[in-house]
């Protein structure tokens, strides 16, 4: 049994079918990239995984435990099962980089301490200690993405690449089982994509389980254990980077790569 098993996922918005039966699996520690043209369901698939969208049918299970459809008991855990890094960062603008990372940790800490009571000084003390611990941890996370000097800066004071690295630290804060990236470099200037990709590569070397929706084919090829090519709401082809890039079997996959190489030569002119 694989670590993550996705079975026959269907999703439609009103009349439009976006996912038409998507199934795949991945193991712990693997890096899976999802590629394909825009509008073919890549992002929707990711959003169905982390609970931002509800699939209409299908199942998702982690480590043998069904997380979708949720039975109420484990529905809250989905957010922590999957970490998410958005295309547009979605940092909280009113908080510093550090607070962006600690916010969810502190909320979790409060949850573990149970009900609030203004006269419960023991709880207050415990919360204070947990918060201090969270802050230390958050500083380490920010250091790991190379932002130890930016902890007290607000998102508006950071470059796009730095903001996305804060977002990665924020997603790591709850130590999710699987870290998802939704086109993490698409909103960045070309010269800033490198720093974000470097962080993702570093995470890979630490053995993180990751799912990356991306248009950076070269990057996907270098970093992935497995690549999924999506077309028209289904998985058209799955394989190792080598299989997919050097020896695509499906006509659609071939066409996709050909179209892209044409674009590259056009740009070269």
């Amino acid at each position: 049994m694989a670590f993550l098993e996705v079975n026959n996922l269907y999703k439609s918005f009103n009349e439009t079918e976006v996912l038409k039966g998507v199934s795949f699996e991945m193991e712990r520690g693997e890096v899976l990239s999802i590629i394909g043209s825009s509008g073919n369901g890549k992002t929707t698939l990711l959003r169905c995984l982390n609970g931002l969208e509800m699939a209409n049918a299908g199942t998702i299970s982690i480590d043998g435990e069904t997380v979708f459809p949720a039975d109420g008991k484990n529905s809250k855990q989905t957010g922590l099962t999957f970490g998410m890094v958005f295309q547009n960062f979605n940092l909280f603008p009113q908080y510093t980089a550090l607070r962006n990372v600690t916010l969810a940790m502190d909320v979790q800490a409060e949850k573990t301490l149970g009900k609030k009571n203004p006269f419960d000084f023991k709880r207050k003390q415990a919360l204070k200690e947990l918060r201090a611990k969270n802050e230390t941890e958050a500083r380490l996370l920010l250091a790991r993405v190379g932002l130890e000097n930016k902890v007290d800066n607000y998102p508006c004071e950071l470059s796009g690449g730095q903001q996305q690295r804060v977002a990665i630290a924020r997603a790591l804060a709850l130590s999710p089982d699987i870290l998802c990236f939704d086109e993490p470099t698409s909103a960045l200037d070309p010269e800033l994509t490198g720093e974000v990709l470097k962080v993702i590569k570093q995470l890979r070397s630490e053995g993180r389980t990751m799912i990356i929706v991306t248009h950076e084919l070269e990057f996907a090829r270098n970093v992935s254990d497995k690549i999924i090519f999506m077309a028209d709401g289904v998985i058209e082809e799955t394989g190792t980077p080598q299989e997919l890039f050097e020896n695509p079997k499906s006509e659609k996959t071939k066409a996709f790569f050909e179209k892209l190489s044409e674009k590259v030569t056009e740009n070269d002119d």
Binding site: L52, K76, G79, F86, N88, F92, A104, R170, L174
Partner: peptide, 10 residues
């Protein structure tokens, strides 16, 4: 996106 970021953070 602000709501979604909060949601995926639990």
């Amino acid at each position: 996106g602000q709501y979604e970021a909060g949601q995926v953070l639990g």
